[in-house]
Simulated assay, not measured.
Amino acid sequence: MTRFLVRRIPSALLVLFVTSILAFVLPRLAPGDPAVAVAGPEATPADIAAIRTQLGLDRPLVTQYLHWIGGVFTGDFGQSYVTHRPVTQLVGDRLGSTLQLAVLAALFMVVIGVALGVAAGSARGRAAKSFLDVLCSLLLAVPPFLTGLVLALLLGVFWRILPVSGEVSLLADPEIGIQYLLLPAFALALPQAAQIARLLQSAMWQSRSEEFVQTAVAKGASGTRITLRHVLRNSLASALVSFGMRVGELLGGAVVIEATFARNGLGALAVSSVNQRDYLVLQTLILLAVAIAVVIQLLTEIALSVLDPRIRLEGAPA
């Protein structure tokens, strides 16, 4: 396991390094000047120039990047251009809301994805297979914000079962907080669940043609036992690999979902940072999202290596 981690960690660090460069460069490619946004519409050119100097925007880009990344290594992500609060405080105030949404969405994603995948991989009749294929295709095709709007109309407006806007922290009031989380988490999870279901379905079909499954059939094992103990057990690796990749997409989709359901999480902070050209906040959010996705992917690979020890040996010296 130690050798496995030693091989994986350098590539994870390389991803984070490249991400830090992209996070720094990409916001600056967009039109607009943070100094103008901070100074206001009535500011004179001299005022704007003074603010640029104050924010350090008049320094060479390489110097700005090195100053920022040096602060990242010490835990200092700088201060917001607009609010003048530390970026860590701004992110910390919103992180809990987004994590609650992402964790519940990930739970829905796994439960729905595995259930659909097992159903599709075990379906015998042509009608059942066609229905599940169409359902997965529909979930993949419809974007989360549209699913969220439909769910909000049905469950929040027509039947008034769940709230459709705002949020209440689970820590403050778990019973009410979960009601505000259900719709956005469900809408966020559905496309990713369909991806997991498709991969699991394909893996199960492939596993059914393996010799060990045919042997179990010849011995007279029941269909349920074959599916759960042999086919599903040997197909879960595909779903597990997909889970690591899907978490990153969940974090990206949270931006749109939070706007749809008026949640005050990192997505809302990212949108306001883009509008206000608040580079330091936006850079931190991009780096944080990728860092979380990288850690989840690394943990997924560790779990996968436990399920299949051959992965730990892949690339190991002879």
Rank of each mutant, 00 (worst) to 15 (best):
residue 8 R to S: 06
residue 242 S to H: 03
residue 251 L to S: 05
residue 202 S to H: 09
residue 49 A to L: 07
residue 28 R to W: 10
residue 140 L to V: 10
residue 146 L to W: 15
residue 103 V to G: 09
residue 137 S to N: 14
residue 39 A to D: 03
residue 125 G to Q: 01
residue 44 T to Q: 04
residue 171 L to Y: 09
residue 98 T to K: 04
residue 64 Q to L: 08
residue 167 E to Q: 11
residue 196 I to A: 02
residue 22 L to N: 04
residue 11 S to E: 11
residue 20 S to R: 07
residue 208 R to W: 12
residue 157 V to I: 14
residue 234 N to E: 08
residue 138 L to E: 03
residue 284 T to R: 06
residue 314 E to H: 14
residue 40 G to R: 08
residue 194 A to R: 10
residue 96 G to R: 09
residue 74 T to V: 15
residue 177 G to T: 02
residue 230 H to R: 12
residue 113 G to W: 00
residue 64 Q to E: 01
residue 245 M to K: 10
residue 169 S to G: 15
residue 20 S to L: 14
residue 280 L to W: 12
residue 51 I to Y: 04
residue 126 R to K: 15
residue 269 L to M: 08
residue 101 L to A: 05
residue 47 D to M: 09
residue 16 L to D: 10
residue 83 T to D: 05
residue 174 P to I: 03
residue 115 A to R: 09
residue 62 V to G: 09
residue 139 L to S: 09
residue 213 V to C: 14
residue 255 V to E: 06
residue 138 L to C: 10
residue 79 Q to N: 13
residue 202 S to N: 14
residue 217 V to D: 12
residue 149 L to K: 02
residue 168 V to C: 00
residue 282 L to I: 05
residue 51 I to Q: 00
residue 290 V to A: 11
residue 108 F to I: 06
residue 199 L to N: 10
residue 278 D to K: 07
residue 238 S to P: 07
residue 114 V to R: 11
residue 87 V to S: 06
residue 305 S to D: 14
residue 72 V to A: 08
residue 87 V to P: 04
residue 237 A to C: 08
residue 28 R to K: 05
residue 200 L to K: 11
residue 101 L to W: 00
residue 94 R to S: 13
residue 142 V to P: 05
residue 254 A to M: 04
residue 203 A to L: 11
residue 213 V to W: 04
residue 265 G to Y: 00
residue 254 A to D: 02
residue 279 Y to E: 00
residue 104 L to G: 07
